[in-house]
Every structure is written in C-alpha cells, then in structure tokens.
C-alpha cells in the first residue's frame, strides 16, 4: 500500500512561509488568492495485512514523529497498490 501524508501548520498558527508565498502570488497578478499554507508531503510504501492496520500505523507515525501536534495538523491517504 502507498501512503501519502500531508502535514501543515494548524489553523491559527502563523505560517510566515505561506504568507510570503501568498504575497508573491498576488504580486504576480493571481487575484483572489488567500489562506496559503505551506506544508510537507511525505510518501512511502507500507506492507501490512489490511488498510485498517495501515491507518492505525500511519496515525501513530504522524502522532509520534511526522507531525509536531503542538503546531501541526496532518492528514493522510492510503492507496491500494
């Protein structure tokens, strides 16, 4: 199975990188852009018996290492390969 995990700063936590990108987009003339958040995208393969087991494992990985839950939130997808 293939895992795609997305980690971004939580709502309410100032994202200076997102703000800089937002300003750059607006100054390039892309109108109507707001709320830019820059985050991390992590992919990997996992060999487990079921999707439920993969979900359980990836949840633990995000909690323990991939995200710092003080400032970051995460979401992930699991794709059967």
């Amino acid at each position: 199975m293939k895992v795609k995990a997305y980690i971004t700063l939580k709502e309410g936590v100032l994202d200076p990188q997102g703000k800089a990108v937002e300003h750059a987009l607006l100054s390039l003339g892309f109108q109507g852009v707001s709320g830019v958040r820059v985050g991390k995208y992590i992919t990997f393969d996992i060999q487990v018996r079921s999707e439920a087991q993969a979900r359980d494992q990836v949840e633990k990985m995000c909690q323990k290492l991939l995200a710092n839950t003080t400032i970051e939130s995460y979401q992930f997808e699991i794709i059967q390969s």
Binding site: L9, V13, L14, P16, Q17, A20, N68, T70, I71
Partner: peptide, 17 residues
C-alpha cells in the same frame, strides 16, 4: 527538548524566514 516534551511549546521558523 521541546520535541521530547520535556519543555512546553514548539520552535517554529523565524518570522523573517
């Protein structure tokens, strides 16, 4: 130490980047 939870909070990228 903040990552281990021995201290509260987190350290983020400087506002100036």
């Amino acid at each position: 130490l903040v990552e281990t939870g021995l201290l509260p909070g987190a350290l983020m990228r400087n506002v100036s980047l």
